[in-house]
Design a protein around this nucleic acid. Sequence first.
DNA 1: CGTTTGGTTGAAATGTGTCAAACTTTGTGG
DNA 2: CCACAAAGTTTGACACATTTCAACCAAACG
Lengths: 249, 249
Amino acid sequence: MVPAPSPSDPHPLIRKLESIAVLTDDERQALLDLPMQVTAIKEDQDIVREGDRPSRSFAILSGFTCTYKITGDGKRQIVAFGIPGDMPDIQSLHLKVLDIGVATLTPCNVGFIQHEDLWDLCMRHPRLGAIFWRETLVESASFREWILNVGRREAYPRMAHVLCELLVRLRAVGLAEDHSCDLPITQVEFADALGITTVHANRVLQQMRADRLIKTKGSRLNIPDWEQLKAAGDFDPTYLHLRPDEVVT
Amino acid sequence: MVPAPSPSDPHPLIRKLESIAVLTDDERQALLDLPMQVTAIKEDQDIVREGDRPSRSFAILSGFTCTYKITGDGKRQIVAFGIPGDMPDIQSLHLKVLDIGVATLTPCNVGFIQHEDLWDLCMRHPRLGAIFWRETLVESASFREWILNVGRREAYPRMAHVLCELLVRLRAVGLAEDHSCDLPITQVEFADALGITTVHANRVLQQMRADRLIKTKGSRLNIPDWEQLKAAGDFDPTYLHLRPDEVVT
DNA sequence: CGTTTGGTTGAAATGTGTCAAACTTTGTGG
DNA sequence: CCACAAAGTTTGACACATTTCAACCAAACG
């Protein structure tokens, strides 16, 4: 008996895939049947490291991760944040050597899926294979926007932009209300994501609070004026390629 | 009668795919049989624009392109250079709305392929479908490295890094000798790729010439000391995921 | 309750941007 | 083949965003 599809589907992976594509009951069931090794991982741990040759990928079931690279002299650049439903290293299905590391920002539950099982799924459900491909392409589009952000926007709009992206993505998987969400990301991590210093990240955030673009209380982020933040960050969610009804502009 | 595979295969697309994967004669023939509308495009023209909803993708047969995005206030960021064999908008196969523009840097010959024909090919030759997927993942890896480059390296190593990437990629498709190649990229374009000003790009290049890392004569680039340039650019070609025998370190 | 982690501050140093002009190469039409 | 325009490159002086360094403060935590 297949459970009725629900907007608040408890399985993060399905919730995420449904935010970018439509699934049939059959496909949803096939995903639920995927052999998945669920593992709890503590905060600030590497799940995978650059140079690894994994035989499995993983889906984030709960918690936040960051995908990062390190320069020869040890400077870290975060290239993406991972939220529940994401599969940050799904690329290892095709590319044997990992060119990135993925670390937890919070305690996480992740579900490991053997590559052979993923291949199997893609073969038996070509449409799901296409959806996974599509997902990697959406990720790729996010990288392009990230390049634009880091390369051509100053620190202040750059920060505004990532905050916008995070809120929209969290909303798409049901982890944010209209104008607030839990964002357990430290200033060091924001700095590494934006390609700036921690000190500067701090100053930019202070300025944004003074400008009443954001309010923070602990790890809680509140956005009093979404339109203004969007404008400040030059943010247009098109590049996230969400299903139209998932985009709350 | 299938022509014997040759290291200098005249078809750029096949040459490129073979630099990242092994093709069977059958697959090579299927690629050659792809209906392709070859078109000559002048310098400095958009091939596709952000917001387009193309029904076809294209392969670069000759010439150079750049893939770019524009901020709300008109600043351009180049996120990738395209060289013969590349398919800069293959993503539009899955993502209906383009989030990028692609422009020619030189006169180009491009081969347009209808999406339906590409889908057809992927269905009939699943391994080729996987190779196209793989290619988009390699591109994705390049974007990640590009973020690291722009976010965490100063202008000088940043420039060195793109020069290294370009040379390695050109070598992989047979368009560069060991230490020199034709690089018809202006300083304005380098600046837009690196997220710096033209003026600064100019100064960095001058410094690199003074340091004898590069020599330029017209659009000809010569690299007297590859090891030193690699070191200056903190360059490791792993992220390009080339077949080992294609990587000349 | 001390220790750790994350956040905040100030002053000085610096990489990169800005602006505006001049120079050089390339391509083209007369 | 010259002349000229257009495109690309180079220069200098100055402004400014961001970094650096080093210290201090506040909240979280066992």
